[in-house]
Design a protein around this nucleic acid. Structure first.
Lengths: 156, 156
DNA sequence: ATTATATTGCAAACGATTTGCATTTGAGTG
DNA sequence: CACTCAAATGCAAATCGTTTGCAATATAAT
């Protein structure tokens, strides 16, 4: 829960972790390294943008694994902190790899026409969030923040 | 699209518009004032917090109207700018009345245990949003921002 | 009152996601 | 390297929120 404190250390700035490093994180948590999981991680590491389960599914060589397996894997990876779940304007969840040790907190600028997205460094001021939490007596406060607009391509 | 420019004028601060005033807005847009619509608006005006369609439905006297009608009404009211749609942590959309002339832009602090929510005045700095839009060549940029935490009640 | 049209109810259709269950498989163990 | 067992997968059915087609109904204008 470092939150917003990493304006600079934005480690998820696309340094493509190696696949072995990823499967290792599974191994260390005594999770099995299976075909589907390796395939999913490999696809995620090659895509700098949040992917839906269906997108991951269709990136796979013909029926490499079942869609339900992807759903289950994403839950596992999320619980392990290896991916982060995002919700944009359309109905489906999207997932992005999270660097080891990072909490993956960041935001996106998303095109409402084509869903293309840009990762942002900007974040809601931490002091204000803290003030909001205190004022209302809430604990463990975080936030979700996404920006929406029309991307250059879709402006014609 | 005034955005964030109304830190103070937060007119939606629970002044409970009268029902006739609401149905009038329907009338002025040559929409029919039907039983279901009046019931929905009446329920919304009595609830200062965003409600799901199901919640609206169950606030109604036994089968006053069909759930599908509520879905359709919310779309209409949203298009007319009379309600605003929000998405919290759980899967379903929530709706809040919007004062006439207002754009309803504001944010919430939501309890992840019980979904109780508090309306906030704080907003993401407009200048930074503008900078984000320009830097990336996006047009018509807005944002969605919600805070999540554990409310006083749910902390035990 | 009459009419034309917007609105509703109902049930079926949908898309995203989850789940039960029987089967398979990864990874320690001897 | 074979053996065992829990973990993981495939498949199909179930669920949840939401949408839609269509025939029946009701509002608002005449």
């Amino acid at each position: 829960m470092k939150k917003c404190a990493h304006k600079h250390s934005h480690s998820h700035s696309h340094s493509k972790p190696e696949l072995p490093a990823l499967t290792d994180r599974l191994r260390r948590q005594s999770r099995k390294i299976t075909g589907p999981r390796a395939a999913i991680l490999d696809i995620l590491r090659q895509h700098p943008h949040p992917l839906t389960n269906k997108e991951i599914f269709s990136e796979m060589p013909a029926g490499e694994c079942n869609l339900a397996t992807i759903y289950r894997s994403m839950h596992l990876l999320e619980k392990m902190g290896m991916v982060k779940r995002f919700h944009f304007h359309d109905g489906s969840a999207r997932f992005e790899l999270v660097e080891e040790g990072d909490d993956g907190h960041h935001h996106h600028l998303v095109c409402t026409k084509c869903s293309q997205s840009v990762e942002l460094e900007e974040c809601f001021p931490a002091e204000i969030e803290k003030k909001i939490a205190e004022k209302n007596g809430f604990k463990a406060v975080t936030h979700k923040l996404e920006f929406f607009g029309i991307c250059p391509d879709c402006q014609r």
